[in-house]
């Protein structure tokens, strides 16, 4: 669960259904584990967020390959825009089923925006509706997962007090959005490979876990924060080494250029 989509066979492309299952099931499982286990184990929320971010990045990858007409970041921002609205709504009315209600609300908002984008605006991207549902769902789970890391639970009162009222929600908004929009934005091009893109998603999500780990020290104490940061660092290291491996695999060749020539050498 923790590694999201980064592991496995090097060249095999993961079908969308697999990533979707990892994101939705892994995301919700992580959120609920982080909620029910003691605050010490709030990093499970972060693991859920990693699954969700990998899912979101894969959905962005599929839809943005069609060409959005504008930059890839826009779709990451709309993901988190829909996500934050749906997440807070679900937690406010859902009680213990909060994340699931949020997820369903996000899917509805995403579906409506997807239909509007294709039918009214006329973008003509065949998978737009499905991708918007996926991106909204992934954004919602990422926000709730990272909120669980900071607050230790997802009850509305706790999230409002420990995440929203002190402004950490803005941090979650941007780093969650980065995790979803950056992987494809950084890797796009004719030689884009799914495993390389998704390894960046895991790496970005691990950075999100590390940063929310720092933020969690305010409410959960240094021990829990330290554990969050440690888990994040381990995942980041593994994912970054994997990414570096993929870059070396996909590059024509990797050569050292040496230092810049000095003034004498140039003459």
């Amino acid at each position: 669960m923790s590694a999201g989509g980064s592991g496995g066979g090097a060249n095999a492309a993961y079908p969308p259904q697999t990533i979707m299952a990892i994101g939705a099931v892994g995301g919700l499982a992580g959120i609920y584990l982080g909620h029910f286990l003691p605050p010490m184990f709030s990093f499970f929320g972060g693991l859920g967020a990693i699954c969700a971010i990998v899912w979101g990045a894969d959905a962005v990858r599929r839809v943005a390959s069609y060409g959005l007409g504008t930059g890839v970041p826009s779709i990451g921002m709309i993901a988190l825009g829909m996500g934050i609205v749906a997440a807070l709504f679900g937690l406010s009315v859902g009680g213990i089923a909060g994340p699931i209600v949020s997820f369903v609300a996000a899917a509805i908002i995403g579906a409506v925006i997807g239909v509007l984008a294709n039918k009214v605006i006329g973008m003509g991207i065949p998978i737009m509706e499905q991708a918007m549902v996926e991106i909204a769902g992934a954004g919602t789970l990422a926000i709730i997962g990272l909120s669980v890391v900071i607050a230790g639970e997802f009850t509305y009162g706790a999230v409002i007090e420990n995440v929203v009222a002190n402004g950490y929600i803005a941090l979650i908004f941007i780093i969650g959005g980065m995790g979803i929009l950056h992987p494809f934005n950084a890797n796009l091009g004719p030689d884009e490979k799914q495993d390389r893109t998704l390894s960046v998603a895991v790496e970005k999500a691990a950075i999100a876990l590390i940063i929310t780990g720092f933020a969690s020290s305010l409410h959960e104490g240094l021990m829990a924060a330290g554990l969050n940061i440690a888990v994040g660092l381990v995942i980041w290291t593994v994912a970054f080494m994997k990414y570096y491996g993929f870059v070396k695999r996909d590059a024509h060749s990797v050569v050292g250029t040496g230092l810049l020539p000095s003034a004498e050498e140039l003459q």
């Binding site: 921002m77 825009g81 829909m82 934050i84 929203v164 929600i169």
Partner: peptide, 17 residues
């Protein structure tokens, strides 16, 4: 906090469309 976040969320949705 919550009003600002909702306003930002609504803003981003309406900026991307």
């Amino acid at each position: 906090g919550i009003a600002a976040m909702f306003a930002i969320g609504i803003f981003f949705v309406n900026a991307v469309i």
